[in-house]
Design a protein around this nucleic acid. Sequence first.
DNA 1: TTAGGGTTAAAT
DNA 2: ATTTAACCCTAA
Length: 468
Amino acid sequence: MDIDISRWILEFILRQPLDDSILNALIHTLPLPNDNLNLKKALILRKLESEISNSSVTEKILELLELFEELDHQEGIETLKEMKSAYCSVAVECTVKFLNEKGAESDKGKYFEAVKRIWKKRINLMEKIENVGFVCEELWDWRDEIEAALWEDKCCDNVIRRSKGIFPVEAVKVFVREAKERIGPPFLDVVAETYRSDDTVRAFFGGVNEQGTCWDNVREVRKGNALPRQKHVAFRRPRGASAGTCGGVRISDSIELGLDASGGQDGFLPTPEIEKAQEALKLSSKELRAMVKDPLPDALQFAETLSSLVRDHMGHQPAENNSDRAPHPVVASSRMDQANGENCEAQRNCHPSAASKPDLMNRKSAAHTSERDDSADVSKEGSPSGVRRFTLPSPKRTKISPLKKYEFKNFTTRRKPTKWSALEEDTLRTGVQKYGSGNWTHILNTYRDIFVVRTAGDLKDKWRNMMS
DNA sequence: TTAGGGTTAAAT
DNA sequence: ATTTAACCCTAA
């Protein structure tokens, strides 16, 4: 599948109320670009929603907000004030929750740890770096009080009382809403809406050409055939760029469209790409949903039924138990990393589960080299000959580093370990006796009602354990 | 789909 | 610090 189309689909479904497992499966299935900030942001927002779906907040949220802020910074966008307050209230909540049980001295230790983790390391780190969007008076205010509460019980009560007035989950929700607003609607929605509401556009793509200019222009140009071919131009337009006003389309636009639409092939219109685009445009928003489902393998169906089974079995709400998932950075925070070595160490200590892995931050900077390279480095060539100067640097798409792909894969969440019951073990023994070890899927299907939460791989692993 | 190596976190 | 149990990844 074309990487752009795949991107549009993900962008679209990230806004749909889909189950996490389905989303994970899709992310595994779709080829995705790693250079699209908005897509990354959408992913983070989706993860944030997932995190707060059980109406509580975790430190994972702080990490996600930091990643988001880093993306904002890369884009040169100012941080939303909603993000500041979300970050602040989540940080407070994650610390003060250890104080809430009155007089429970044992929790004071946890509180101490939390203050160290969140305020002494994570937040103090920000102070040292310029331009971190979370920095605000409110945050320092809280920090002072929270640190004072370490030593004085009076401050302790004060902090608890004050923290009653914050609503971190709400704050995160508000931020997510605002951030979505800022990102704008998914491209497919825009296209569908434009197509529905704009006759000109419909005419343009539907082949009903009232003005008789657009495609004719393209054809003229194509017949002339003296132009260099450019790739990656049209259909990659930024969202909101008006694809409409066919009548007023400038010749250069037509050229772009025509050439890219031809996809570099010799065939005349319509090409597969055009057909794809047209197909997409002709679908209503409802139909688009159906289209999203199309590429899914049967496994997805299974994932869905399985997860609903799990829910029924466990008697929980969808997307619960997100809180204890390991952190999965979507992007690396290079800015923080560069601040100083000690900080780097501090960060790693904040996330023990990430510590054992190779440093994601460093890996990211290493991966940078193989991203798409469309920087205009003509000057660097040092040969400003006349010919060269008029040649636009052609964006060449290099293959995406596997390290970069890793970032997306990390959206996958690890299941919570579930102890095998004696019944399950017995059933497995029976199954293996009957069907032989190795026919895991068959055994699983035969005793579905027993192995509610297991996969064929689980059966295999369990048998391996039982045999050792 | 499975086998087999790898990872994670709880138990010892 | 090691071992164990559950889960993940991926080549074939």
